[in-house]
């Protein structure tokens, strides 16, 4: 994996490339020699039937690279990668505000001494970041749940808060693992709008794993399809839709 670096990479150039990644759990080969790239500024979807290795793939992107054999989670975060999780991984007992503020941890640097006093530099820093967080809260329209512990929120809103937390990191690459899972139509539409807005407004590159084909085909610029851990197609939504291997994988094929 090449660490993203915003000074060099322009829109349309490769932001991240995955080359020949394999992953096995014991004898189960979850991913077999998969390669693809993500270009800056695009929405890239990774799809595939259940158990195709999509989430494993995403975990690989975040956790391990090819060029750097072991990419530590911390390095991924400093390198500008943020992600959301398939089963929401929010800080349940913290409020929405604190969750999103926690997303800005890396960008805050006042030390223990000032934190203890919470005065002067530490307070200014807190206010400055609070302003950024409020922008994100406005952007995602979650003002009304600012002070609610996220554990008490409905699922759809939790997903939105999680997106907010990832956005607070001001990432260059945003990995979304099934952002629409378990949502009703209305919530899905909202989420789609936010994903597109994030892409347009912040210029964030997005890698998306999703089961809802309608959503994927509408949102993504390019789609990579996995099946049994192997890449079977890669291209624009229209190309992928017409691909024989993809249709077979989804609909099954007579043997």
């Amino acid at each position: 994996m090449r660490a993203p670096d915003d000074t060099e990479i322009k829109a349309g150039q490769t932001l991240l490339s995955v080359e020949g990644v394999s992953l096995s759990f014991g004898g189960v080969k979850a991913i077999r020699n998969v390669s693809f790239d993500i270009k800056k500024g695009e929405i890239r979807a990774i799809i595939g039937p259940n158990g195709a290795g999509k989430t494993s793939m995403l975990n690989q992107i975040t956790f391990k690279g090819v060029k750097r054999k072991k990419m530590r989670p911390h390095d991924a975060a400093t390198g500008g990668i943020a992600r959301t999780f398939q089963n929401v991984a929010l800080f349940k007992s913290m409020t929405t505000l604190d969750n999103i503020m926690a997303g800005r941890t890396l960008r805050m640097n006042k030390n223990l001494f000032w934190q203890l006093l919470r005065f002067g530099p530490a307070e200014r820093e807190e206010i400055e970041h609070r302003r950024k967080v409020e922008e994100i809260i406005d952007f995602l329209e979650i003002q009304h749940i600012r002070r609610v512990p996220v554990g008490r929120l409905p699922y759809g809103l939790q997903k939105r808060v999680e997106l907010g937390r990832a956005l607070a990191m001001e990432p260059e690459l945003l990995l979304l693992d099934e952002p629409m899972a378990g949502m009703n139509l209305e919530e899905k539409e909202d989420m789609c709008r936010y994903v597109i807005d994030v892409n347009n407004h912040y210029g964030t590159t997005i890698a998306l794993i999703e089961h809802d084909m309608g959503v994927v085909m509408d949102l993504a610029n390019r789609v990579v399809v996995l099946d049994y851990g192997q890449k079977i197609a890669d291209g624009t939504p229209d190309e992928v839709k017409a691909n024989k291997a993809v249709i077979d994988a989804y609909l099954g094929v007579a043997h």
Binding site: P73, A77, R83, F91, K92, S93, T105, R165
Partner: peptide, 12 residues
């Protein structure tokens, strides 16, 4: 305390 994996991925 709440979710150490997510915390780690946020650079903590």
């Amino acid at each position: 305390r709440d979710m150490d994996i997510a915390a780690e991925l946020m650079g903590i």
